[in-house]
């Protein structure tokens, strides 16, 4: 994935079954963001792979004051990339099982 300065990773092991999964977002390089993030903490949240959209979660983080509006695309992209990877891995596991 492209280096956005924001890293999103799984906060729990993916059992490949549940739709809602815990994820963790960390700012790795604040210089890559246009605005100043609130702090350098890790933000843990749950993401529903079937219902949630990365753009909405990014906007919620901005509403909550973690990031500035100008970084919404960067945050959304970081989440989207990770979600795509999780989905891809699940598909591959499913194919292997069949």
């Amino acid at each position: 994935a492209e280096d956005t300065g924001v890293r999103v990773e799984l906060a729990e092991e993916d059992d490949g079954q549940k739709s809602s999964i815990a994820m963790r977002l960390c700012v790795e390089d604040a210089k890559k963001l246009k605005g100043k993030p609130k702090d350098n903490g890790a933000i843990e949240f749950s993401f529903d792979l079937h219902k949630d959209h990365p753009e909405d979660v990014a906007q919620e983080m901005i509403d909550s004051g973690f990031f500035q509006e100008c970084d919404s695309k960067t945050v959304a992209k970081s989440i989207r990339d990770r979600v795509a990877l999780i989905k891809w891995r699940r598909e591959r596991t499913q194919q292997a099982n069949e």
Binding site: G41, E44, E60
Partner: peptide, 27 residues
């Protein structure tokens, strides 16, 4: 420090925990 919890009006919960300084300086 301890973790802080923020609940967005949409219902999603964000749990913020401080990252140790040493980890931030890793390449």
């Amino acid at each position: 420090g301890s973790a802080m919890q923020v609940v967005h009006s949409a219902g999603r919960r964000f749990i913020v925990s401080p990252v140790p300084e040493s980890r931030l300086q890793e390449p």
